[in-house]
Design a protein around this nucleic acid. Sequence first.
DNA 1: ACAAGGATTACCT
DNA 2: GGTAATCCTTGTT
Length: 211
Amino acid sequence: MFLTEPPFTVLERSFYEAPTLAVARDLLGQLVVRRFADGEIAVGRIAETEAYTVGDPACHAFRGKSRANAAMWGPPGKAYVHINYGLHYCLNAVTAPDGVPEAVLIRAIEPVQGAARLLRNYTGQEDVTESSACSDKRIGAGPGRLTRAMAITKPDFDGHDLTDAGSALFLARGEKVNDGAVTTTTRIGITKGADYPWRFYITASRWVSRR
DNA sequence: ACAAGGATTACCT
DNA sequence: GGTAATCCTTGTT
């Protein structure tokens, strides 16, 4: 039991029912809260997202349902965790009504709490101080990096309910990010649908994976 | 069974 | 800025 646990306000399911592009934009500034098995809590502020929708050739759901992507068809507010390049886990928040496969990829987080634990997770090294960890880009700048730092795997979290504040992983309300502080660009690392401007990031964030 | 490709990262100049 | 590493998922024999 941690006496200093912040009073997190979980993002309710209705948040994820808005149009996927709006959810991708509005997830900026919100918090990813990870409660580890030993009770320690790490928190990251979302700095970069991408939207993937029905009819979008880059969306994993585009070629139909499979065992690997089934979570995208679930109700909004669930997690879709996929393996990329055979080795990286990527975390998505499922959006759109139940049965409609759309999601938002979380591409970067800024460490808010528990940076030392995140870097320990990432490197396996034990001798990590909070002050050195909090500026290390490896714990949040990139979709594969943030899941590794947060110990988010497909077996553990694919299909997980991100609206369950009592669980090991949920999203909570952070500070609002004004439109003037947001940059919109095309998505990264894809070949199909590469011209859709469906990537959003906090312009001033030092944790954006690429500019 | 096998081959091809992928919502990335790390390491080089 | 460029490229190799790495291996799971999927579609095809």
